[in-house]
Design a protein around this nucleic acid. Structure first.
Lengths: 138, 138
DNA sequence: GTAACTGCAAAATATTTGCATCCTT
DNA sequence: AAGGATGCAAATATTTTGCAGTTAC
């Protein structure tokens, strides 16, 4: 079992099970956003679809992963940075979707610029999704 | 039938049918983003679910509406501004989701600030979704 | 040992496809 | 009249729920 995955589970007071460690290890290893389907196919041994749904929901609740709003409304999940805590996400970074390789990554280093909203509006969370070509596909 | 809706259909060389005009009129009247479900319930007389799916797909293809990536991955649609043409969307504006009233609106006036991406990355389209409270819910 | 986790079955929901009929032009 | 649009039925895909057996601590 991936030690890093186990540590993350421990840090969030979650019991360590094969499915959780395995799914988490997949996120750590792939370094990009994954869909439910991808997870289902890349985990070996495979886990029940329902287990994956429940595991992902748990991880989101605990602030371990977050989901990414994509232009075509498929559901993607990616690891959160450390600042995320249960119930409150701080994913103020840019999500980049590459048209060529289809990969969705979180650009942690790139900050989202401040925006000025119309009078009376108050921002709580800001999501930014950029489509284009990534550094590897030029 | 809503004349504005008819004009939009004509401008895109689409035949004018009850469902198309009615769905389009709903967007014009409500001035906010709508889900498939909302459209299904607010149209009277009601249209078949399948017709709504096909109409929305057609409108997106023709650049009449665009879909909005939401944090909870529900599918929302909103009217495009005039610059959109078939096959190529220019929705470089901010989508605002109000936590209080649940309304999603397009802030057409508010420009998305320029961002600087990592070396090698090229942006083609930029989406921005802001969550918070809107002017009406203060 | 006990509470929590998993897998299976099945329900509920969402989306797509095929086809016959109807409507727009 | 002809081609496209609609509605219905049904296939497919996605997500949720209930429950009994299994596992982590």
């Amino acid at each position: 079992m991936n030690q890093q995955a186990i540590d993350i589970l421990k840090n969030h007071q979650l019991s360590i099970t094969a499915s959780r460690a395995s799914i988490l290890a997949l996120f750590i290893k792939s370094k990009k956003a994954l869909s439910h389907n991808t997870i289902e196919h890349k985990c070996s041994p495979a886990f029940d679809r329902v287990t994956i749904y429940r595991t992902l929901a748990l991880f989101i609740e605990k602030g371990i992963i977050h989901n990414i709003p994509t232009a075509d409304n498929t559901t993607l999940y990616a690891l959160c940075k450390n600042e995320c805590t249960a119930g409150h996400h701080h994913d103020e970074h840019i999500h980049f979707i590459c048209d060529d390789c289809g990969t969705t990554t979180c650009l942690e280093e790139t900050d989202i610029p401040k925006i000025k909203l119309p009078k009376g509006y108050k921002a709580f969370e800001v999501q930014m999704v950029v489509t284009g070509t990534c550094g590897h596909c030029v």
